[in-house]
């Protein structure tokens, strides 16, 4: 199977008044099209690792190769392009932009690069909305829909550019159990339909066990990598 992600001996320090080791020689790889959880308690380094995988932060040594692209060699503009094309982010908080409709929010990653819409992309957005059951709220603004609907809209936004990887940081952290179930089922459904690779950061074992691969972190180091058949 193709490798979508290769992480080799990555070391990350937070350079404040004191240098703090956040990730210590982390290495792993991922096949294309799988759902992977990065599991660990608070402070284990899982969010730091996600930041690095998404090109949102830099690291001190090692290599990260995403879809055959070594992101440590990219400059700011190239990283922006990389994030736009290769990565879809789903955050714990939806971070939809209140000033735009749900449809405009979903299209935003596409608009950043293309600066115009066409029937094709709008239909694609509507299809995604349909998959996640928010087709009725596309013309509404985020403040006027429920928390679950907002998170589903964020999922659509993450998918609009057909990214190589979806990075989800505690995506169900702000949701009730019903919506948590809905969102996880959606991830698995989208993974099945579109073969999109998911990396989900979570401290919740139940969510981790829905994934095909679980990488457990503790104190900035990988303690185990398990295949979940």
């Amino acid at each position: 199977m193709d490798k979508i992600l290769i992480v080799k001996n990555v070391v990350k320090y937070y350079h404040d008044k004191v240098d703090t080791l956040a990730l210590n020689n982390v290495s792993f790889d991922l096949e294309k099209g799988i759902v992977c959880s990065i599991y660990g308690q608070s402070g284990s380094g899982k969010t730091t690792l996600l930041n690095l995988l998404g090109g949102l932060d830099s690291f001190d040594s090692g290599e990260i190769i995403v879809d055959n692209q070594n992101i440590s060699k990219l400059n700011d503009d190239e990283l922006s392009f990389f994030r736009n094309q290769k990565i879809g982010f789903i955050f714990q908080f939806h971070y939809l932009i209140s000033e735009f409709t749900i449809l405009e929010n979903i299209l935003m990653p596409y608009l950043i690069l293309n600066k115009k819409t066409n029937k094709e992309i709008i239909n694609k957005a509507k299809e995604l909305a349909d998959i996640v059951n928010i087709e009725d709220v596309l013309e509404k603004y985020p403040d006027y829909i429920s928390g679950g609907e907002r998170q589903r809209a964020a999922i659509c936004r993450a998918l609009i550019n057909d990214p190589s990887i979806i990075l989800a940081d505690e995506p169900t952290g702000n949701l009730d159990s019903k919506n948590t179930e809905i969102v996880m089922d959606l991830f698995l459904k989208i993974n099945k339909i579109k073969k999109t690779t998911f990396i989900i950061v979570t401290h919740d074992e139940k969510i981790a066990y829905k994934s095909q691969k679980i990488i457990e972190l503790k104190d900035g180091q990988i303690v185990s990598i398990r295949e979940n058949k």
Binding site: D76, S80, R83, N84, M108, P109, L113, R157
Partner: peptide, 16 residues
């Protein structure tokens, strides 16, 4: 700040 962070995460360049 948050909107700026989101736009950066979505791939918008600093200049833009």
């Amino acid at each position: 700040y948050k909107e700026i962070g989101v736009l950066k995460a979505l791939g918008m360049k600093n200049k833009k």
